[in-house]
Design a protein around this nucleic acid. Sequence first.
DNA 1: TATCATAGGATAATCGTTTTCCATAGCAGT
DNA 2: ACTGCTATGGAAAACGATTATCCTATGATA
Lengths: 147, 147
Amino acid sequence: MAKGLAEQRRQEMIAALRAGGHRLTPQRLAVVEILAESANHPSVEQVFKRVQRDFPTTSLATIYKTMSLLKQMGQVLELGFAHWGSRYDGKKPYPHPHVICTRCGAIVDPESPGMQELAQQMAGKSGFRISHHRLDFFGLCPRCQGR
Amino acid sequence: MAKGLAEQRRQEMIAALRAGGHRLTPQRLAVVEILAESANHPSVEQVFKRVQRDFPTTSLATIYKTMSLLKQMGQVLELGFAHWGSRYDGKKPYPHPHVICTRCGAIVDPESPGMQELAQQMAGKSGFRISHHRLDFFGLCPRCQGR
DNA sequence: TATCATAGGATAATCGTTTTCCATAGCAGT
DNA sequence: ACTGCTATGGAAAACGATTATCCTATGATA
Ligand SMILES: [Mn+2]
Ligand SMILES: [Mn+2]
Ligand SMILES: [Zn+2]
Ligand SMILES: [Zn+2]
């Protein structure tokens, strides 16, 4: 079933590229496949290294361009950080909470309660028109807690 | 009363510097005063320009160093962003939600419901030991909604 | 298969932030 | 107040992730 989910996401991303009139290049397909399969919120560098296996001449700039394209199409969620590089979620490309290990950099998707309602509340109180949100919890993952 | 609050924060920051065995330089005191008074989550650049009024020879590096120092002492909250510069909150140096205008960059502190409990919930479900968190809501402020 | 605009590759540029290095000036201790 | 030690400030270079540039290569369509 995990395979099915990933496959579905892959199809959606490809469909989005088609719908947007973008070319289905081997590099893009490779990035899409990796994003659809990765549950660990990979970095650009990680995606880059994996794409390079199949296409050794691939440039890092291409990965950045593809990420940016998928992001603007709403097909990938970017978790930008100030001091270290961004991380990406291609499985759940919509806002959702994350739990982040400050030691090893692991990022996981926890079970999320009603964030939407909270967002609406915020909008009402601040007068803002909320478009999206971001919720991160920082700490030590189980593995890093043991020194 | 707003003056009282700012004054209190100023004292706390100065006390923290003293307690940490750090020198009370004119530049640091200037930064502290600005952070204690600013409710608009200023950027390094903004703090820099204001400090320069009183101390024209001030370097941008000094502001960065001071921000970093205050941050590691827990006297200022840093809101780091991936694509643009960081913003700082010296009035409430602990984690709390923010509402951010994606057009003009305005950042405000909304009324916050129980975030602490939510954090504990997350910890339990993920097995993480949560130390801090971050919650941002993005959208358009009232002023920017009118084109 | 010819055409053509888009996308890839290589590299330089960007920009906020950090580091480096030395002169300066807090701040004990006298 | 004076001295001396050392943290700190200032200036500029370095840094690192990301973006822009520029030219060639290659999907997509007919
Ligand atoms: Mn996720
Ligand atoms: Mn705040
Ligand atoms: Zn960890
Ligand atoms: Zn605005």
